[in-house]
């Protein structure tokens, strides 16, 4: 087991290194650099920066150097915890991203919990009562959730929150708690806001997960080991939750790790609509303005989180499924 974990960690480090190179290169791929898009914006506003000024800025940011030099400079900072300065905002990247990353994780984790706590019981029920009315109803609602675009659902829920609950909508905090230090009241305020993004981000995933759980369960509930458990005198409920559900869950455990990037990707539009202080909109802006240190740092951090998540789910799966440990 120890050997297994060490090997996985080494593989993870190599993966992160490869991702850092690729993300840096891809962000640089569009023609021009931050300064060309900066100049274009200045020109739109009627301003003009002189050639000299631009040249000075280019040198001070190191943009005139070859790409591998830029990469190495950036990476030598990253390993010391310095992600560089955001070209657009003029502040250290680290100041911009940590709060937002935390909020993204919060929204992501709460929607994962939402998805799981809804989809697993429904999937189990659908399989054990296959072709029943509720099986059809949950399938229908699941597909409906899958089909409705996220931004649409976000708008509808905002309207409901506003007209039914009289809540101020958008964002994750009410105005008075925006810059307040953390307190119980602020936490409660957060909970009263987070349910909208939680549902919006989670709905599409719930539908998929119900179907997967249902299919996995249908594969398992007719297995002889379930029949043995029944012959032993276990009640149906004990039997279902102890044996087939345990086996049917394994594929989920192995995918927890990469639930994160897809959640953040799916969250960008929702975050824009709902005005959430999460990382998605920041990444979008960074990419549009070719703010490579900001965008690069975000992509790198997300990748690291994904790799760590996958590592954790691998370890968890090995703990839960003895057949994995053998290999």
């Amino acid at each position: 087991m120890f050997q297994f974990i060490v090997r996985r960690i080494l593989i993870a480090l190599v993966t992160i290194f490869a991702i850092s190179i690729m993300s840096f290169v891809i962000i640089q791929l569009p023609p021009g650099d931050f300064l060309t898009s900066y100049m274009a914006r200045l020109a739109e506003q009627g301003d003009d920066a002189s050639e000299e000024q631009i040249q000075i800025m280019r040198e001070s940011y190191g943009l005139d150097q070859p790409i591998y030099v830029q990469y190495l400079k950036w990476m030598s900072g990253v390993v010391r915890g310095d992600f560089g300065r955001s070209l657009e905002w003029g502040v250290p990247v680290a100041d911009l991203i940590w709060d937002r990353l935390a909020m993204s994780l919060l929204v992501g984790l709460s929607s994962v919990l939402f998805v799981w706590s809804l989809a697993i019981p429904i999937g189990v029920y659908s399989a054990t009562n296959q072709y029943s009315l509720l099986d059809y109803v949950s399938t229908f609602l699941g597909f409906l959730g899958l089909a409705i675009p996220n931004f649409m659902l976000a708008l509808v829920l905002m309207w409901i929150a506003f007209s039914v609950f009289g809540q101020d909508v958008g964002g994750l905090f009410s105005a008075e708690y925006q810059d307040a230090p953390w307190s119980l009241a602020k936490f409660i305020d957060l909970l009263s806001h987070i349910w909208i993004p939680m549902i919006v981000v989670g709905t599409a995933g719930t539908a998929g997960l119900i179907r997967t759980m249902r299919a996995n369960m249908l594969d398992e509930i007719n297995q002889p080991y379930v029949e043995t458990a029944r012959a032993k005198g276990l009640s149906e409920r004990q039997n279902i939750w102890k044996y087939p559900v345990r086996v049917a869950l394994n594929p989920f455990i192995s995918t927890v790790g990469y639930a994160l990037p897809s959640l953040i990707g799916g969250e960008i539009i929702v975050a824009v609509v709902l005005n959430l202080p999460t990382i998605g909109p920041l990444l979008l802006r960074g990419l549009l303005s070719q703010d490579m240190f900001l965008a690069g740092a975000i992509v790198l951090l997300l990748s690291i989180l994904t790799v760590i998540g996958t590592l954790l789910s691998d370890i968890l799966l090995a703990l839960l499924d003895p057949r994995i440990r053998m290999e």
Binding site: P224, E227, T228, A231, V247
Partner: peptide, 19 residues
């Protein structure tokens, strides 16, 4: 079941839980 009438099956492999 099992207490007074027990039952064993054809497939000893899959009659036991994999996990």
């Amino acid at each position: 079941r099992w207490g007074e009438i027990a039952m064993i099956f054809q497939e000893p492999m899959t009659s036991l839980s994999p996990v």
